[in-house]
Design a protein around this nucleic acid. Structure first.
Lengths: 389, 389
DNA sequence: ACCGGTTTGAAGCCCCGCGCAACAAATCTC
DNA sequence: GAGATTTGTTGCGCGGGGCTTCAAACCGGT
């Protein structure tokens, strides 16, 4: 049996447009949906009815709008449609349920005193999902699981090639979690998923070409958005800016011999400079802003090297915005316009004259939102397909 | 009047698919078109008939195929549909007509002893077009002009922001040429258009994620293909790898203080090392391969620095292939696997294990083909639109 | 409170574009 | 030359979105 009709593709795309709109922009009246899509009133009514039948959106009474004319019912993503988001890290495993309405009804952070294997991680996630299904999420429709993993993830099959801090190598995490939970699962690099979240709901909202760099305890990772979509590259390993070798103008700025970016610009060096052994991000930020001249010089050194790395990325990719997260946000926040100036001095003027540099705006939810988004991706691409299956 | 029907979009896309297929892959039988598109025989017949009516393709008698079954007529892009491609350079202005069938019926290289202004360039192009229209291209249908400019080109409006070697700055080249010729005109960066040509017809054919670097007399430029499409970035200024500052492990390898890639890796330094003042690319290649130890050391030095720049790009973009053109091809060709190994040593293993490094395969036609492709882009996006207007 | 103006939902109809089935045509093999 | 095979051709059906008409629900002014 071939396709009933290729025009099915039109229906699919229109359903996807609507679902994506209410997912990304929140509840919208049917009238506003006709506006944004350019589709006919009657068509919108039909499409919305189908999405309601499939349990993906709900229609509720019109909001009082104090405008003339017949009020238009409001269409909202069904909060009961959910994705499970998980983020395995060195010291904890965070699991949450994220609604299609972007709500996070449940979240749990499991503190760990040792590293978990991929199997153990999958079992813990499955356990949580089962418990939630019997309790808080009894009436939920869980569409899938998204994992944000700190390491290289092969896009094609969700194989974790190398996650050094978790000591995972060539682990078929997608399949393990899918089997344990019985849910379709997607696995992504944490920085890439963070970039997606910042692009959709954070500091990079509204920008189609984004370079996102995150500074974590373990190194520097990044994610790229081009043409409004995540750039995965041939294998799925884009954005590994931490492994880049930027030029270092002054030999006195060099700390590591033939070092990569994350050897020179690192949270550990920053902590050492402010005289701390461990600190969370706000504490580090406070220490940096209150620091003496020695620490200030280390911050300045890291900013110089970072600026070259950013300039290299800007020359190559000409993004409209660069978003910095983690400790990179901390050293950038000291003087964001100053950092922008340093970057501009190392790029062609046309490339960077419109360039924005911002610190990330989403808090620790970023990875969970990005992971959930990845889990929702298939549903948002083909809303009918999920219902059909 | 709004859209007659939004399903027009389906028709448009299907027409575009067919036209793009015969344009990119050459003449194809209707049977093969039904195969590749998945559309119905009857639909293909209808679509092809429309393209024939619009004068974009021609149908000819079936090729003898020595296969059973009724022979299928062959559909080919109409050679009379043409784009004018032009490439202003320091020493010459090259103008050609490129057919939708990828033929180049006429080409002219106008040698120059001085730099031309944008106005003069536009006038020369218009002059050629007019002459050709009265002669060789009497029965041609010229759909537009594409310019490959060595400099920064704003994608939105074809304004040449800065082409240092031509001494053009903020020149509205697209509008100048469009007005002089009366033809729709697109302007692009030469390296970006070269990347498009290599992607469609050259060394990168079949790869969806391409990093292309070209070494010219004036510097190093690049073009990026991601998801099979050119990456233009926010302003259109992607691929300026020549302005990047790669790390230089050994201080003795450094020649320029705080120099950018094209200060360290340059055609001029290469010429000096082999003891030549000027040479075209084949002559330089011959000199390099026949050179003594001093020259070999300069080649090796440039290769080391180039490998770091490439590794930075590979870490960030995870391309499936890196294509090198111009003198970069020359220094790479000395030992391509060796260069690949050097790049791999500076990238994460997963990122580069599948990575291909190749030298560009298209000759001097590359820029003309890329420019023509840009001029054809609108037609290939909406075949009906061009006929309607 | 009522009435016109305005906006939008609801229902029926039309048309576009593609798929499908049946038939005809052109080729190969034996 | 007959059967098999492949593909063009033709007519018909159907899905899906647009359009038109009518009704419903809101506003404001008198």
């Amino acid at each position: 049996m071939s396709d009933p009709t290729a025009a099915e593709g039109v229906r699919q795309r229109n359903l996807a447009r609507l679902l994506r709109l209410v997912h990304l922009e929140g509840p919208l009246s049917r009238a506003r949906l006709t506006e944004s899509t350019g589709l006919n009133r009657s068509t919108i009514a039909d499409l919305v009815a189908e999405l309601v039948r499939e349990g993906l959106v709900v229609e509720r009474a019109p909001d009082p709008s104090r405008r003339v004319g017949r009020p238009s019912p409001v269409v909202a993503a069904d909060a009961r449609v959910m994705a499970i988001a998980a983020n395995p890290e060195v010291d904890a495993l965070t699991i949450a349920a994220v609604g299609l309405d972007r709500g996070i009804p449940v979240r749990e952070r499991i503190e760990l005193d040792r590293l978990l294997s991929p199997d153990e991680t999958a079992r813990l996630i499955a356990e949580r999902v089962e418990a939630w299904r019997a309790g808080e999420l009894a009436d939920a429709h869980i569409v899938g699981v998204g994992l944000a993993v700190p390491g290289l993830v092969r896009a094609a099959d969700g194989l974790v090639r190398n996650a050094p801090h978790l000591r995972w190598a060539d682990a078929p995490v997608r399949d393990l979690v899918a089997e344990a939970t019985g849910l379709p699962t997607v696995v992504g690099n944490d920085a890439t998923l963070g970039a997606i979240a910042e692009h959709l709901f954070g500091a990079a909202a509204g920008f189609d070409d984004v370079v996102y760099l995150n500074g974590g305890a373990s190194g520097i990772g990044g994610g790229l958005i081009v043409h409004g979509q995540p750039l995965l590259g041939a294998g799925g390993y884009t954005g590994e800016f931490g492994q880049n070798r930027p030029g270092i103008a002054s030999a006195t700025d060099r700390r590591a011999d033939d070092g990569v970016l994350e050897d020179e610009v690192s949270r550990a060096r920053l902590l050492a400079a402010v005289g701390l052994h461990a600190a969370d991000e706000p504490a580090l930020a406070a220490a940096v802003s209150a620091a003496g001249p020695t620490a200030a010089e280390e911050v300045a050194r890291q900013r110089r090297i970072l600026s070259t790395a950013l300039a290299n990325a800007v020359n190559a990719l000409n993004p409209s915005i660069v978003v910095l997260g983690g400790f990179l946000a901390t050293i950038a926040a000291v003087d964001v316009p100053g950092l922008a100036t340093m970057v501009q001095e190392q790029t062609m003027s046309a490339t960077s004259e419109q360039l924005l540099i911002r610190v990330a705006s989403l808090a620790e939810d970023r990875l969970l939102i990005g992971a959930a988004e990845a889990a929702f991706a298939e549903l948002l691409r083909d809303p009918g397909g999920a219902a059909r299956s």
